[in-house]
């Protein structure tokens, strides 16, 4: 019978390596795929997974079981992802990180094999995501892939709920423009 997250946490806190391993395996794929979409690079996504679970391990004793483990985990994931995006995105635009705006142009040079790569669904989606300003990228991830409510997203990004909704709307418009440009 599968153990609950709380049972695994209790066992991991008591020093059980198999319990810790099971807890990580249960949640790592969600974190990794989030990393792939937000960072558009498998190495960075794996860095994110390692950062996140190191943070989880160090803070596990603080988890009180009042919220779901996945909710608590997600706060760590969000903060680590923001850190990583900031570190990967060197340059002057770091100042207007949370500015609303038009999508960034694609970093990659266009080439004859682009259309081949873009038939790969994930490649296409992470390309779209990577062209969004980071704040919009995060909100799309949280809303569409993680199915958080705007009431949950707003405090994570430290913005009012209405701003979160406007940012999401702007992101969808940008994505729509990219999808149309590709078809």
């Amino acid at each position: 019978m599968d153990q609950s997250d709380n049972q695994l946490i209790a066992a991991a806190l008591a020093g059980s390596l198999p319990a810790w391993d099971a807890l990580v395996r249960r949640h790592e794929m969600r974190v990794y795929n989030l990393g792939l979409r937000l960072l558009n690079n498998p190495d960075d996504a794996l860095d994110l997974v390692q950062d996140v679970f190191l943070g989880v391990y160090r803070n596990l004793y603080r988890f009180r079981g009042e919220s779901q483990f996945s909710t608590w985990l997600f706060r760590i994931v969000h903060n680590k992802a923001v850190d990583l995006i900031r570190r990967r995105q060197a340059g002057p635009e770091i100042e207007d990180w949370f500015e609303e705006g038009t999508p960034e142009p694609a970093n990659n040079l266009p080439g004859p094999l682009d259309s081949y790569l873009e038939t790969e669904m994930n490649q296409r989606i992470s390309q779209f995501m990577s062209r969004l300003p980071p704040a919009q990228r995060l909100i799309v991830e949280l809303k569409v892939f993680q199915a958080l409510t705007f009431e949950e997203i707003a405090p994570l990004q430290d913005i009012p709920v209405n701003t979160a909704k406007t940012r999401f709307y702007t992101a969808l418009k940008n994505l729509k423009a990219m999808i149309e440009a590709q078809t």
């Binding site: 997974v49 669904m121 994930n122 989606i125 969808l172 994505l175 999808i179």
Partner: peptide, 18 residues
């Protein structure tokens, strides 16, 4: 638009030292 994004296929992790 959200439906387009949700066509994402989840990818398993490469092996790593948990």
């Amino acid at each position: 638009v959200p439906g387009e994004l949700l066509r994402w296929q989840s990818i398993p992790l490469p092996d790593w030292d948990r």
